[in-house]
């Protein structure tokens, strides 16, 4: 493990030095709130945020992606991303979520690999920023994460007053730090102590959600009428799924102009929309919002456990914060787990 300290004001210099031909993504205060965007100078970066509104999944799995282009009836060009990225500042929960998306898009059985997502991932360095003060809606420690979790990150950074402590957690992270080693000062003992204390404090302050036995429970109560009650508030929008760092469902559609030229695109889609499962015959296996919200919960807390061995929830709390009717997933899980 490599460690090093820089001053906050030198962050962009460090990132751009190590970047080479890579693009640098960092949190900015954008029109719609905190978001991750390609940056070109220090003053664009903000470190004053609990988390971004949109999860960083869109960096690797953009909401709109061209799969190929065509003209008339012939395939013209297959597009795959070429850019290499350095992503700075994603929170440990979101870094963890990337390891889940990796499982979906790489397919452990090795049958179908998703070149669009994987090309970007393969070339990316993830530098995540440990949480000093988790939000009241955060519950990462209840779903296997931590405010200073390292999973999914190549480097974990602690914010210490006017300094940043870098700690590599993968070979790729170590290489990154080596490339820019001249810019790092040695991490002193009090830096390390401060980081450790900060991590402990953040972790201890987290609310605990008891999700023991949840999978077995939700599997058992699939038909329970309580689902009607807990999903009654749902408006059927896709805000929770679009903001969620692990939701990855998508649609594939073609768009063409009058000359017959166009592209095949993949766009985010949501299990909360009736059209998502509507058969051509008119039959719909999930006709109502109870079934659709149940699918969302089952998918995250049961089906992915069967298929990938993980709960696909990192406790970021975005779905709680931004739900128009405050339909709180913690409440739903609590209620189900008590059944």
């Amino acid at each position: 493990m490599a460690q090093g300290v820089i001053k906050k004001e030198d962050l962009y210099r460090l990132l751009s030095t190590a970047a080479g031909k890579k693009k640098v993504y960092a949190p900015i205060d954008g029109v719609g709130g905190i978001e991750f965007a390609e940056i070109h100078e220090q003053k664009e970066i903000t470190l004053d945020y609990s988390n971004s509104k949109l999860s960083p999944k869109s960096i690797f799995f953009p909401q709109r992606e061209v799969l190929c282009t065509f003209a008339d009836d012939a395939l013209e060009e297959v597009q795959t991303p070429k850019e290499a990225l350095i992503v700075f500042g994603i929170r440990p929960c979101d870094a963890l979520s990337l390891t889940y998306l990796d499982k979906v898009f790489s397919d452990s059985a090795g049958r179908f690999k998703d070149p669009y997502y994987l090309k970007r991932r393969e070339n990316a360095v993830i530098i995540s920023l440990a949480c000093k003060e988790p939000r009241a809606t955060c519950f990462c420690t209840s779903v296997g994460g931590s405010p200073s979790g390292k999973e999914g990150a190549d480097i974990l950074v602690y914010e210490l007053a006017d300094k940043l402590l870098f700690e590599s957690c993968s070979d790729r992270g170590q290489d990154f730090m080596k490339t820019a080693s001249v810019l790092f000062k040695q991490a002193e003992e009090d830096h390390k102590t401060a980081a450790k204390e900060q991590a402990e404090k953040a972790k201890d302050g987290m609310p605990v959600l008891n999700l023991n036995g949840l999978k077995e429970r939700v599997d058992k109560v699939f038909e329970d009428p309580l689902w009607d009650e807990i999903t009654r508030n749902c408006l059927g929008c896709g805000a929770c799924t679009y903001l969620c760092p692990t939701c990855h469902c998508f649609d594939i559609t073609d768009e063409e102009n009058r000359k017959g030229e166009g592209y095949r695109i993949r766009t985010w889609d949501s299990c909360q929309y009736p059209l998502f499962t509507l058969h051509a015959s008119g039959h719909n296996p999930r006709v109502n919002k109870k079934q659709r919200m149940r699918q969302r919960i089952m998918h995250k807390y049961s089906y992915t456990v069967d298929n990938y061995g993980d709960i696909f929830c990192v406790g970021c709390g975005r779905c709680i914060l931004y739900c128009p009717v405050n339909l709180d997933i913690r409440d739903m899980l609590n209620t189900l787990n008590k059944l």
Partner: peptide, 16 residues
């Protein structure tokens, strides 16, 4: 343009 560029097509406006 600025306002609409924030939209992520989640349909929350429509559903609410």
């Amino acid at each position: 343009k600025r306002e609409i560029s924030k939209c992520i097509r989640c349909n929350a406006c429509r559903q609410a």
